[in-house]
């Protein structure tokens, strides 16, 4: 299999973190690269194990996104070799439950995080960001946009660390799930969150969980917020999902 290395330059993020994706499926790689670049990373892609190891050793990447099933060396071998040689590059493994078998614990010792296939590219981006952020907490030079502990939308403010929601400064009592849902929606105010993503992010355990669970919580959340004086902050995009409306007239 011919080795292909593609460098996707992102003019807006010259100083962005460099991410290496080792993945043998071109279609997945395309989307993942695009998503990562869109998020401001400088991403390179290698489609073989051996090429990946080589690139990882010499490329000076900040983070590796490593698939397990690869032509040549597999993901576990690459991980092992990198860690043996003392590399401390952040590594995010793309795994699947069925390919892990007994190697789970071993792999967990070496990798910094993992994501099970199939995944949403958005999740991958969030994980990458989180890993890089964790690795350099002091580095707030703007390489990675640090998600604020406090998010604002209209007269609503949400404190992630304290798990507090306030409407015009007055605290609103929310249950755990209601907070989770609001927090998820407010991670990117103004952006439409498709139902599928919300469900996967919040109810991943329920393999056959009822679809209407999201509607129930949206209804509850809306009622709580409107009771507190923040009505119509969650907008339904029919057939797509929900989003939190950003009121530009108010200060964020």
């Amino acid at each position: 299999m011919p080795e292909t290395t593609r460098s996707i330059a992102n003019p807006e993020a010259v100083r962005a973190s460099r991410v290496l994706l080792i993945e043998d499926d071109e279609r997945i790689a395309d989307s993942v690269c695009e998503a990562l670049n869109h998020a401001g990373f400088q991403t390179e892609w290698v489609n073989t194990g051996d090429g990946g190891l080589e690139a990882a050793r010499t490329g000076g990447f900040d983070l590796l996104v490593l698939d397990i099933v690869l032509p040549g060396l597999d993901g576990f071998q690459i991980l092992g070799k990198l860690r043996e040689s003392g590399s401390s590059t952040l590594i995010l493994m793309l795994t699947s439950r069925d390919s892990l078998e007994d190697r789970v614990e071993g792999f967990r010792g070496g990798a910094d995080d993992y994501l099970t296939k199939p995944f949403f590219t958005e999740e991958l981006v969030v994980r990458v960001e989180a890993l890089l952020r964790r690795a350099s907490p002091s580095d707030s030079s703007g390489r990675i946009k640090n998600p604020a502990a406090s998010i604002h939308a209209g007269n609503l403010s949400l404190d992630r660390l304290r798990r507090e929601v306030k409407v015009e400064g007055r605290p609103v009592e929310l249950t755990l799930r209601e907070f989770d849902l609001l927090e998820y929606l407010m991670r990117a105010p103004g952006t439409v969150r498709p139902r599928a993503k919300i469900i996967k992010a919040l109810w991943n355990y329920g393999m056959s969980s009822q679809d209407n669970i999201l509607d129930v919580y949206i209804r509850r959340l809306r009622s709580r917020l409107s009771d507190a004086g923040a009505s119509d902050i969650i907008e339904t995009i029919r057939g797509v999902g929900y989003r939190v409306i950003v009121d530009d007239s108010k200060e964020g």
Binding site: K117, P118, P194
Partner: peptide, 24 residues
């Protein structure tokens, strides 16, 4: 069952990631 799940894994990732890209 395991094989089916395994075989569906990659196509599903491809599908969802490409849909996501289109949505973006």
């Amino acid at each position: 069952g395991a094989t089916v799940a395994h075989q569906l894994r990659t196509p599903l990732t491809v599908l969802s990631s490409q849909i996501e890209r289109e949505m973006l």
